[in-house]
């Protein structure tokens, strides 16, 4: 933590950056909060731990790229997945590489509030402590020990790239690529089901959506100036939270994220009704990998899969 703070101080003092986006302690025990730092002394607020769920890259494109217009050079603290979002931005010509200073941090995985609440049977956690591989959850009248695995986000459990693939500075030890065996297990489980079962799962899950668009708005890859769902003329889909419209919204978003989703889990953490958005995201990711050998955000020199074409690509979607 101290190393990170010092690095940010130095970057600001040396005028290498005008702003640093990072995480600070949140107002609730289980969450951190994004923080925007322009003065070296503010760097003391910075943290990096298992509560840093936000993918801060999203702020580079948010609000019509306002930060980019205001600050010449932006420093941004990233986990592996967040760095991949920046790589994606560069390959999609949204952010110029020389306008960002990427500060990698060694990610050990982020906790999922919903899983923690499940562990406590719904009771409010007021404090959490890490003790080796254990997490101690403390409430008004209880103290529970659980293993880290139990409360890590699903996307962290199957994370292959905890380190930033692209960075200017790296704080701490690299973890290297992790050989995850069952990265696509949730997709395979899903694929094994019959069409009717799959449909039932999807309708059940997405019927709960309240269409607040938190998933879309936290998502770094969702940076369209006008989202198809907001379009009035023509209006592509209904705006009411009817299950059919909800499904269309989520499916189109999924497809629009093909080759663009870095599985950072921001959408899952953001959802106020805790929808399990991941299986379909992951399904599209798997397709991209199998069809085009492409994984989003790993190589800053590689063209985005959906924006390039090569002759030996499978074309069965056209020919049947």
């Amino acid at each position: 933590m101290k190393e990170l703070q010092n690095k940010v101080k130095q970057l600001l003092n040396d005028k290498e950056v005008d702003l640093v986006i990072g995480w600070a302690k949140g107002s609730l025990p289980l969450v951190s909060t994004p923080v925007f730092i322009t003065e070296a002394e503010q760097a003391e607020e910075l943290i990096f731990d298992h509560t840093c769920r936000n993918n801060l890259a999203t702020y580079l494109t948010k609000d019509r790229k306002r930060l980019g217009k205001k600050y010449n050079k932006i420093g941004i603290i990233v986990k592996g997945c967040d760095a991949r979002s920046i790589v994606l931005y560069v390959t999609e010509n949204q952010v110029k590489r020389d306008k960002v200073v990427i500060i990698g941090v060694p990610c050990q995985g982020i906790f999922e509030s919903r899983k923690i609440i499940n562990c406590t049977n719904g009771r409010e956690v007021l404090e959490q402590k890490i003790a080796g591989d254990q997490v101690i959850l403390i409430g008004r009248d209880f103290e529970i020990k659980v293993s880290r695995e139990e409360v890590l986000r699903d996307c962290c459990l199957s994370c292959r790239y905890p380190d930033a693939p692209e960075y200017d500075h790296f704080i701490g030890e690299h973890r290297g690529e992790i050989n995850v065996k069952d990265e696509f297990k949730i997709v395979e489980d899903f694929e094994k089901k019959s069409a009717a079962e799959r449909w039932q799962l999807i309708t059940e899950e997405y019927s709960k959506c309240i269409r607040c668009y938190a998933c879309r708005n936290v998502c770094p890859s969702c940076y369209c100036n006008y989202c198809f769902v907001d379009n009035n003329d023509p209006q592509w889909i209904g705006k009411t939270p009817e299950v059919t419209d909800n499904i269309i919204f989520h499916l189109i978003r999924n497809l629009h994220l093909a080759g663009r989703c870095v599985d950072c889990g921001a959408c899952v953490s953001a959802c106020p009704v805790n929808l399990d958005l991941r299986p379909l995201n992951k399904k599209v990711e798997k397709e991209m990998k199998e069809r085009f050998g492409y994984t989003a955000g790993l190589d800053i020199n590689e063209k985005p899969a959906m924006a390039s074409h090569c002759e030996n690509e499978k074309q069965d979607f056209i020919m049947g």
Partner: peptide
């Protein structure tokens, strides 16, 4: 307002 991402979660909840 710096960190707000302008979703509707707060208003809908």
């Amino acid at each position: 307002s710096a960190k707000c991402i302008n979703c509707g979660a707060c208003a809908y909840i």
